[in-house]
Every structure is written in structure tokens, then in C-alpha cells.
Amino acid sequence: MEKNIIPHTYQISQDDRKKLNNQNSFLMWFTGLSGSGKSTIANVVEQELYKKGIKTYTLDGDNIRKGINNDLSFSPEDRTENIRRIAEIAHLMVDAGLVVLAAFVSPYKKDRDNIRSIVKDVNFVEIYINTSAEECERRDVKGLYKKARAGEIKNMTGISAPYEAPENPDIEINTEKETVEEAVYKIIEFITPKLQLNHE
């Protein structure tokens, strides 16, 4: 089948789209346990970028699983496929000239490494929302930990499935010590030079 797939060469490139948007395009990947604060922080970061006139799009775990990935379970294999598909979607959006924010547990290092290889290292910013499992369970924003403890949810990251923390993330946020405002400031400060077209 693959030998019959011949990509068409289009005249408008990623560089052309970035120039039109007057911004660089890249992927900001927020990883951490459920309830760590990924979506909350990504949401405020996007609001700040919007105020600056930056063209963005946010991909979020629950929204993706209700749509394009509604055929996937939470088994290790399906988690890997979930992240692979999201990485490919993000890659297209980066190619379209957007700053993409993605908030996903993404518990496996190999899957996050695969994202980096799909979108290319220069287009990838890994943001580790470092919140302890105890604190996430205490918050239990969606009631998932309670269900996992009751045996209603299998393969719950942090309870019955592992989370492999990033070893060298571009940005690390400890939500037990840093406020949302402090986290957002740290992220914006890091990515501001990257937004400039001449950064590359």
C-alpha cells in the first residue's frame, strides 16, 4: 500500500505560513498525572498568547477521546496509539503555522520521544506539570481516583498504571509550590524568544 502513496508537493510551505502569521509555529506538550493542572495551565497560557495576537490551538485529552480517538481504550497499546495520533495532528497544525498546546497525561517516555521525532525536536517544548500522585488524588477534580480506588477504572495512571516522569523537560512546574500565575509566567518567558521568526 505504502508504495502507492505519493505525496503531492504544494507550493505554500510551512515557512510561508509562518511568515503570513508573523510567528513561529511549534508544539507545547503538557504532561503530568490526571488532576496535575495541565489543562488549567494550558488554558491560561493560551489566553495570554491570544492577547498577544498569537495564533494557537489547544488539543485536550478528553476532547480528543470523545472524537477522533473514541475507538481507543486505556490499555498501554491504545495509550501509545492515542498519543501517536495526537502527535500527527499536532504536526499538521504546526505545519499550518500555529502554536499548538497539547495537554495529555502521556505517561510513557517512549511515546513522548515519539512525539518529538514526529514534530521534530526544534518544534517541541516539553512541559512537565509535576504534581504528586497524593496531591492529584486529593484534588480528584474529575472523581477518577475515587473510581479507580473502587475498581471502576482499570489502568489508572498513578494508581494501577505507571507514570514515567520526564528526566529533562524544557520546563518543569511544581503546582504544589507554584501558583497558576507563576507557572504561566515561567512558560511565557521561556517560549517568547521561540515565537520570533528569526529564532530558528
Rank of each mutant, 00 (worst) to 15 (best):
V99E: 02
L92W: 02
G143V: 03
R84N: 10
L98C: 07
I153Q: 02
K177D: 05
K147A: 08
A90E: 07
I188K: 04
C136K: 01
A133T: 12
V184S: 10
D140K: 04
P107G: 07
R79I: 08
A102W: 03
G143C: 02
V125N: 00
K110M: 06
G151L: 12
T179W: 14
V99I: 11
V180H: 05
K154E: 06
E152T: 01
E135W: 01
K120A: 05
T157W: 01
S160P: 10
Y128S: 10
Y128R: 13
A87L: 15
A161M: 03
V119P: 06
V100A: 10
N123Q: 06
R84Q: 13
D111R: 00
E176F: 03
A90C: 06
E81P: 11
V94N: 08
K154N: 11
E126H: 05
L144C: 02
N155R: 07
V122T: 12
F124I: 08
F190E: 13
A165L: 08
F124Y: 15
I86D: 05
D121K: 15
I115Y: 00
I129E: 01
G151S: 04
V105L: 06
L144A: 01
I153N: 04
R149N: 11
A183F: 05
F190V: 09
E77Y: 06
V125R: 05
Y128I: 11
N174S: 14
K142S: 09
K186P: 09
R85D: 13
K186I: 02
G97H: 00
R138Y: 10
T179P: 13
G158I: 05
I159K: 09
N130M: 10
D121S: 12
R139A: 12
I115C: 13
N174P: 01
I86T: 15
E189D: 11
E167Q: 13
E164W: 00
A96C: 14
I89D: 03
P76D: 09
V141C: 04
R138V: 03
S106C: 14
F124C: 06
N114T: 07
L98H: 01
G158V: 12
F104T: 09
K110T: 09
T157V: 15
T157Q: 01
K110I: 14
Y185T: 08
D121M: 10
V180Q: 06
V119N: 04
L101Y: 01
I89L: 13
L144T: 00
